[in-house]
Design a protein around this nucleic acid. Structure first.
Lengths: 210, 210
DNA sequence: GTCTATAAGCAGATAGAC
DNA sequence: GTCTATCTGCTTATAGAC
């Protein structure tokens, strides 16, 4: 693996561990085992490394939100979908933890992230609408209710890992993640058919997407 | 008003506008209209200013979560309570937006914040339990369900303003805040008596705690 | 209490040798 | 492609005059 790839990998690791704002180019270079000069040979500045990481996040995000989301939506597929989204949020946690700080200093990234977020929330809405069309979800408030579910689940999803870290949980366990998924699911559950909900809960408890 | 108070005020304003990590002591001093030396006469370091702001947040937080929370809990009191909590989150938004970054560099603050958070979530649970004892809320999952409501509403409350800012909304309107309160309420609503919910929604729409 | 001037350290980024 | 050495600009914090 070339230095460029190793720099990207080190940056992701360090920013996840320490937070994006605490990781400088000198440190990235040292921990990668290259010189600062070499880092600036591969990237024109620090922002460009973060952009590259965002490219990867974006790709994986699009993939996760579309791969398993094919009607009909049985409990296993829905559970697998949520497990994957939480795994993604974990692997790029530096981004979701410090989003606002990152976006304030980088208008280009801000615009890209806002697009991703809009698309993500809309996609969560489509999934909920799909479950409703399958006859497994009934929201008394119709389209507005579905939109609220989408936004409510987005807020919990995008902030769950940050919440764990703020709470002082240093090494996050599998159980902390399933707790988050169940927390997210509590928002949707009141509108699901009871057997359907139970089936999803069981899938969540028994599997974990690596 | 003395320089000490003006420094605190300026710090709160700047950190809310620009994010805590972007605000240095030089800038605080300049915008307050005092010298860096004078700032360090009043505070031994930058952390101490943030601690002082946290003291104020803590006081107001305890006040808000206890003042209006006296049984029985009629719709007006509940609505007023939530309006006040959102107002608080707005006035100290720098803290909730960049919590993790702040806590990583300041273990003392981290411990204090974790205590506040634990207490806040427990208090939200007590409020929900109080509504249930008044006969206006029925959660099929009992105590576990109440705990989930408390955590779910905490997550939305503490992240709503950050979400607005990340979304690119620069000047937050009253309507953006009521949208957040309604979003938070959507988590509780499925378990409320319908007339009770309607009464709260109307209070939320019609008042605003300054 | 308040100021000016400055120390000490670290950040991002560049020049030029190899 | 990779290195060493360095520049510039910023930060927190202090010394000492007034």
């Amino acid at each position: 693996m070339g230095n460029r790839e190793r720099i990207i990998e080190t940056t992701l690791r360090l920013m996840n561990e320490l937070g994006a704002e605490a990781v400088g180019t000198n440190r990235i270079a040292t921990e990668t085992g290259v010189s600062p000069g070499n880092l600036y040979y591969h990237f024109s500045n620090r922002e460009e490394i973060v952009h590259t990481l965002f490219d990867a996040l974006e790709d994986e995000f699009h993939d996760v939100l579309q791969r398993d989301v094919v009607r009909p939506l049985p409990p296993e597929r829905i559970a697998a979908f949520y497990l994957r989204t939480f795994d993604l949020a974990w692997r790029y946690r530096f981004f979701f933890n410090g989003t606002l700080g990152l976006l304030r200093r980088d208008p280009v990234l801000a615009a890209r992230y806002q697009g991703l977020q809009r698309w993500g929330i809309a996609e969560l809405g489509s999934i909920a609408a799909g479950i409703a069309e399958d006859g497994n979800l009934t929201h008394p408030r119709g389209a507005a209710g579905i939109a609220s579910l989408a936004l409510g689940t987005w807020l919990i999803w995008s902030n769950w890992i940050g919440f764990l870290q703020i709470s002082g949980i240093t090494d996050i366990q599998r159980s902390d993640m399933t707790a988050g998924i169940n927390q997210l699911f509590d928002v949707i559950a009141p509108y699901l058919e009871p057997e359907f909900e139970a089936a999803i809960r069981e899938c969540i408890a028994n599997q974990w997407a690596p």
